[in-house]
Design a protein around this nucleic acid. Structure first.
Length: 812
RNA sequence: GCCCGGGUGGCGAAACUGGCAGACGCAAAGGACUUAAAAUCCUUUUCUCGGAAACGAGAGUGCGGGUUCGAUUCCCGCCCCGGGCACCA
């Protein structure tokens, strides 16, 4: 047959149309349980595809398609974009009617999605922007409220002036908003809703044991750091005179006899009584200075309050200071300074001439003597000069001293976490309304379940910064109190969008349930997720929140699993111009351009070929042409060789061996490592061999070659693969065929090629049948023409023979 | 500062368990086809030295050591890059 030119547009359009209404990926629930894969990503809905998503998509899609071909059913839903915000800030989000926008974009997504892949299981369509999804967000919120897991308090919160909204701690990056890295986050005191994720801190840590092996160590470490559990003790230093206690937290009670002052945070509540007007002004100055600067490079500063406090262990009177390096948000907001055994305290006390008193002796050293101490000793050792605890090891002293504090009522062993409760209030229009009503006489009243969902009003006016635009919508705000019927005000804060992404994959399993968020039986069937694929950038946001949600849902009694996903694969980020590519940054490279120019097959395959999936890739479009060329080569080769070829093929053996070797290699790579880049390289090698041997491949061998080639390409380039499949006169979608099997006999080479080295340097090759005895190999190697010159005048010390592989001659 | 990754040609990268470093692709150069161009096909390309050439020799996987017949791979020390955490008491 004459060869056909590779016209990707025509091919893709053709199959796009034919497959329009097909549902290839419908899980067959009556067969063995399908694997449940979740790809946390989506094509970017604005019409411009987000390359980070394409990458993620391509990886998961190729994998899922391969799994299908291997006979594993894969339920392969993709996460809905929970943020749904196309651009820079709240202003834009607020201007768009979300429902309309959402519906429009679902349509757009279906289009682009079909184009880039077609594996979406449309029946399970879930949009986190839909009122039906709001309903269940609100339902969960009310359940948490019932259980005391949701609460409201006035709190200092992170406020982004550009977004004009509150941010969670997780959303603050280096003191700036995660969406506006040039805008410093301010601190404001506002009434806010919180979820008590801290109640689950220990579980979140302990259950990581279940995830070992299945989750990347890197992600677990990041989560561990983020939760930041540290064990220590709390103790009260009573103010001399009033007896008012200053509670401090320390991980080193064993050093408390070395405490030479107490330092409180500038915003410590006690400062109201502790300080005079001047002192309070200084403290406020410190707070402000800290808010506007990188906390790392602020110099330690402090001042003496003029007051003293009593060390509860030694009875010693120590001065009370205010220090800018003491954080109100961690521990108790006050510390005891032990300069001899803490670096920061050392620096501070040196600067202000506060006494330094060593009380820990290194196990195999001397107790340091002040003056002359150059640095603090922060390790454990033997406790000295510490009354009845002298002579104990640090470890034992910590236990006994904590117990002593508890017996005497001035403290106890205590655990502190770095993680804070999850602030979920947002002053945006966009988002799930928090379902409570504020009544003058009844207080905070939950919206009754039967009144859910509370839906956002359609028409809003954007006021700009500062307050939720919902406050200006009287129909929304003014309601009767559900308890007493008196006029009341509806809560106008909406929920953080991370709520949406915390449980969407559960809803996928039962997307149209109107009675419950989902049927527990269905979750029991599908969960845990076998494989979750997402970006590493979510390690401490989304992936902690969704673990938390899972545990809460389990405690409510909806599900039985404690963790959402058994295995997590974090795909590397896409970097453009040195920064990670993201929608909010605006440095997104459009993959549409690639797709327009070279077609969807090339766009997908190029992304897969760039690097192994776990690696970051620096985006550059240069190589895409090579992929397009390759697909053209394959297509033309196939079309001109269907039903062609001589009767006898002198290269059949060689080509078939290469074919089966290729298949063996990529099967292995798919199975274990997901290194699609090398899979594709192998197929390219095969095609190079096919080109070189084309004239000598028999008509008998050609069908097998083309068929297997088409099937191997199916996970990466489904359209070309399908077109070749059809050219071969085959029916049905190529990517629903079984993955081709290789013949282990054919994979084997006829003879072994044995490397000959002299002193580890390559000096030649010998060919010998597999299993040739060592002695013979050795003799042949020594006699080799290329080898002999290197042996001349030398003495052969030793010969190492690795059968079928290598002979190394060691000479002197 | 602490905790993870990583460092291989002009570039993206390969090398499965310690056994031929640089597969595959990009880019570049040369050639074939063509009136010409595009497309396509073929060849060359780690560096240095020798040679007209086929080819040959040496060096080479961030740096310095070590283990080994043999190290990109294992061990020790250092440098650099990326990511995470960070006055966290």
């Amino acid at each position: 047959m004459p060869e056909k030119p590779y016209d990707h547009t025509q091919i893709e359009l053709k199959w796009h149309e034919r497959w329009q209404n097909a549902d290839f990926y419908q899980a067959e629930e009556n067969s063995a349980k399908p694997k449940f894969y979740v790809l946390e990503m989506l094509p970017y809905p604005s019409g411009t595809l987000h390359i980070g998503h394409i990458r993620n998509y391509s990886i998961g899609d190729a994998l899922a398609r391969y799994k299908w071909m291997r006979g594993f059913n894969v339920l392969h839903p993709m996460g809905w974009d929970a943020f749904g915000l196309p651009a820079e800030n709240a202003a834009i989000a607020n201007q768009r009617p979300p429902r309309e926008w959402t519906l429009q974009n679902i349509a757009a997504m279906k289009k682009t999605h079909r184009r880039f892949a077609f594996s979406y299981d449309w029946d399970r369509e879930v949009s986190t922007c839909e009122p039906e999804y709001y309903r269940w967000n609100q339902w969960f919120f009310l359940k948490m409220l019932e259980r005391g897991l949701a609460y409201r308090k006035k709190a200092l919160v992170n406020w982004c002036p550009k977004c004009a909204t509150v941010l969670a701690n997780e959303q603050v990056v280096e003191g700036c908003c995660w969406r506006h890295e040039d805008t410093a986050v301010e601190q404001r005191a506002l009434e806010q809703w919180f979820l008590k994720i801290t109640d689950y801190a220990d579980q979140l840590l302990d259950d990581m044991a279940q995830l070992e092996g299945g989750w990347p160590e890197r992600v677990l470490t990041m989560q561990r750091n983020w939760i930041g559990r540290s064990e220590g003790a709390e103790a009260d230093f009573k103010l001399a005179g009033t007896g008012e206690p200053i509670r401090v937290f320390t991980t080193r009670v064993d050093t408390i006899f070395g405490a030479t002052c107490v330092i409180v945070a500038p915003e410590h509540p006690l400062n109201g009584t502790l300080l005079d007007a001047e002192g309070q002004a200084r403290a406020k100055g410190m707070v402000d200075a800290r808010a506007n600067r990188d906390p790392g490079d602020i110099e330690k500063e402090g001042f003496f309050t003029g007051r003293y406090a009593i060390n509860p262990y030694s009875g010693e009177r120590v001065p009370v200071w205010v220090g800018n390096f003491v954080l109100m948000g961690y521990g108790t907001g006050a510390i005891m300074a032990v300069p001899a055994h803490d670096e920061r305290d050392f620096e501070f006390c040196r600067k202000y001439g506060i006494a330094i008193r060593p009380v820990i002796r290194p196990v195999d050293g001397e107790l340091a003597v002040e003056p002359g101490m150059q640095q603090s000793f922060t390790g454990d050792g033997i406790v000295e000069n510490s009354g009845p605890w002298s002579g104990l090891t640090s470890h034992v002293a910590r236990l006994e001293m904590s117990a002593f504090a508890e017996r005497n009522g001035f403290g106890q062993a205590a655990i502190t976490y770095r993680i804070k409760d999850w602030g979920i209030s947002r002053q945006r229009y966009w988002g799930t309304p928090i379902p409570v009503i504020h009544c003058a006489s009844c207080g905070v009243v939950p919206v009754p379940e039967e009144q859910l969902p509370v839906i956002l009003p359609d028409r809003i006016e954007i006021t700009g910064a500062g307050r939720s635009p919902l406050e200006n919508v009287p129909e929304f705000v003014n309601v009767a109190c559900p308890r007493c019927g008196a006029p009341a005000r509806r809560e106008t804060d909406t929920m953080d969008t991370f709520i949406d992404s915390s449980w969407y994959f559960y809803r996928y399993c039962d997307a149209h349930n109107g009675q419950m968020p989902f049927d527990p039986a269905k979750i029991a069937y599908w969960f845990e997720i076998d494989q979750y694929i997402g970006g590493v950038e979510h390690a401490i946001l989304h992936l902690i929140y969704s673990r938390f949600f899972t545990k809460v849902m389990r405690d409510i009694g909806l599900i039985r699993n404690s963790e959402p996903a058994r295995r997590l694969f974090t795909q590397g980020m896409v970097i453009a111009e040195g920064a990670k590519m993201s929608k909010s940054k605006g440095n997104v490279v459009s993959a549409d351009v690639l797709a327009e120019k070279f077609g969807a097959d090339t766009a997908r395959m190029f992304v897969l070929f760039a690097a192994p999936p776990e690696k970051e890739v620096d985006w550059r479009a240069e190589g895409a042409e090579g992929i397009s060329r390759f697909l053209g080569r394959v297509y033309r080769f196939a079309t001109r060789n269907v039903g062609q070829g001589p009767a006898a093929g002198s290269s059949d053996r060689k080509v078939l061996r290469k074919l089966h070797q290729t298949l063996a290699r990529i099967t292995e790579d798919f199975e274990t490592r997901w290194h699609f880049n090398s899979c594709i390289a192998r197929i390219m090698e095969l095609v190079n061999v096919l080109y070189a041997e084309e004239a000598n491949i028999s008509a008998a061998a050609m069908p097998e070659i083309l068929e297997k080639l088409a099937l191997m390409l199916a996970p990466f380039a489904p359209y070309v693969s399908q077109e070749i499949w059809e050219e071969l006169g085959k029916e049905g979608p190529a990517f629903r065929q079984s993955w081709p099997v290789f013949d282990p006999e054919l994979v084997k080479e006829d003879e072994a090629e044995i490397v000959v080295q002299v002193n580890g340097k390559l000096r030649g090759h010998i060919h010998a049948p597999f299993g040739t005895p060592k002695e013979e190999l050795e003799a042949r190697a020594l006699a080799g023409e290329r080898v002999r010159p290197f042996l001349a005048g030398k003495q052969v010390v030793k010969v190492i023979v690795v059968p079928d592989k290598l002979v190394n001659i060691v000479v002197k």
